[in-house]
Design a protein around this nucleic acid. Structure first.
Lengths: 211, 211
DNA sequence: TAGATTGTTAATCGATTAACAATC
DNA sequence: TAGATTGTTAATCGATTAACAATC
C-alpha cells in the first residue's frame, strides 16, 4: 500500500478496478490510459496520473497489462491486507450486509452480526452467525476486530458505538442518521442511505433545469 | 435550489443537517459557525463559506437560527422537490432499501420494487409493493418515475438498466459491481458496498502505519 | 521507421483557509 | 460599550489538465 494518494485518486481507483475486471472477463489482455478513461469517464491524463501515483510502471509506448494492473491497484488500495469487521443490528439492512459475499476482494472480512433480540442468537445469514449483543465487546477483543458496522436504529446508535469502542474497534461505518461521539483516533464514516439517494435526486434536478 | 455548489459543499451540507437536527432535538435554538464546525469536524471558515454559498443570510454578530437554517439547507439541496424512484431486485438488499422510511426527508419517494421471481409479486415490505418485473417499464412511464435503484445480481444489472432507461428513467443508483452502459444524459451513481467498506479499511491501515 | 502511448513536468483551475471590516 | 460572530475578499493550497520528451 502506498500512502499519500489524493482523495480523488482514491475514489477513482475502484472504478478502474471494476472496468478492468470487465475487460478481463471479455478476454482483453491489455488496456491504454485512453481506453480506461473513455469507459470510466475520466481524462487520459488523469488516468496516467492516478496509476503513476500508485506505483504502476510501464515503459512508454507500451500499454498496461490488465492482470498486472489489477494487482497493482488492489495492492495500492490495501485490498491484500485483511481487516475483520462486525455488524451491530441484524435488521433488514444488517442482514443484507451480512449476506454480502465479496468483502474478501476488498480487504475486509465480516465475521458476525450482533442483535439485542435474543431470539435471533444462534441463527445464520449467508453462512455468518448472528449473536447476542452481550457477547459483542469481548468477542471483538478476542478476535481482534477493528471495524464496526452500525445498522441499529438511530436511538441506539451511540450506545452501540460506545460498546464497539470498548471492544477495541478503531473504525466505524455508521448507517444511522446520527452524529456519533467517539474518542480521538477512532475513524467514523457516515453512510446515510437516504442522503446518498438525495444526492442523486439533486443532480437530476440540476440537470433538468438545463445545465 | 441553488446551482453551482462545489462538490465539497454538497458533501458537507447533509452533515450539517444531521447535526442541526440533533441540536433541535436537544432544544437549542441557535448555533454559530464555530459550533457547527466543532461538531462536524470542519473549520468555521468553511462552514460560513458553505452556508453563504447556499444563500443563508444572517446579519454579522448574530448566530444562526436552527429551524431556519435547517430549512435553508434543505432547500439548497433540493429536498423540498420530490422525485419518484423504484427498486429493481427484491433480494436482501432490495428489501432493506424498500423498508427504509425516511426517503421523504431527502426529496425522494420510493414507490415500489420489482423482481423477476413471480412468487413475490403482490407481497409488501414496509408498506411498499413488490411487483413483477414485467410491469416495470410501463409502470415507470405511467407514474413518471425518474430514478431507478439497481440491486439485482451483477449478471442481470445491464438488462435491468436497459429496461429502466426504456421506461424513461433518468438517473440510476447502481449497487451491482458492474460498469453500466447508458445513453448520454442518463446519470449513473455507483454504490458498491464492498468498495465503501474497503475505503474505511484502507484509512485504518494508513492510520496504523502511523501518519 | 512511424504511430502509439507512456511518465512527468509546468500551467491552470478550483477549493479551502485566513484575515478583517461590519455590526448585532 | 466590548465581545461575538457574521459575510466576503485575498492568499494559500492542492488537484486536474495540457503538453511533451522518451521509447516501445
Amino acid at each position: 500500500m502506498i500512502a499519500a494518494l489524493s482523495q480523488g485518486t482514491l475514489q477513482r481507483l475502484p472504478q478502474y478496478l471494476i472496468m478492468l475486471k470487465t475487460e478481463q472477463r471479455e478476454g482483453r489482455g491489455s488496456v491504454s490510459a485512453d481506453g480506461i478513461g473513455t469507459v470510466v469517464g475520466v481524462s487520459p491524463s488523469q488516468v496516467r496520473h492516478d496509476l503513476s501515483a500508485c506505483g504502476v510502471n510501464r515503459g512508454p509506448g507500451e500499454s498496461y497489462d490488465v492482470a498486472e494492473l489489477t494487482k497493482s491497484i488492489e495492492h495500492a488500495l490495501g485490498y491484500d491486507d485483511i481487516s475483520n469487521a462486525v455488524i451491530v443490528g441484524a435488521g433488514q439492512l444488517g442482514r443484507a450486509l451480512l449476506s454480502y459475499q465479496n468483502y474478501g476482494d476488498y480487504g475486509v472480512d465480516v465475521v458476525a452480526a450482533f442483535d439485542a433480540d435474543e431470539s435471533m442468537a444462534g441463527t445464520e445469514v449467508g453462512g455468518k452467525p448472528i449473536l447476542s449483543v452481550k457477547r459483542m465487546t469481548s468477542l471483538c477483543r478476542r478476535m481482534k476486530v477493528h471495524i464496526g458496522i452500525i445498522t441499529v436504529p438511530a436511538i441506539h446508535a451511540q450506545e452501540a458505538c460506545d460498546r464497539l469502542v470498548e471492544g477495541g474497534i478503531q473504525a466505524i461505518w455508521n448507517f444511522a442518521p446520527v452524529h456519533l461521539k467517539v474518542p480521538e483516533g477512532v475513524i467514523v464514516k457516515n453512510e446515510i442511505i437516504a442522503v446518498s439517494l438525495g444526492e442523486l435526486s439533486r443532480q437530476l434536478q440540476e440537470k433538468r433545469r438545463g445545465e
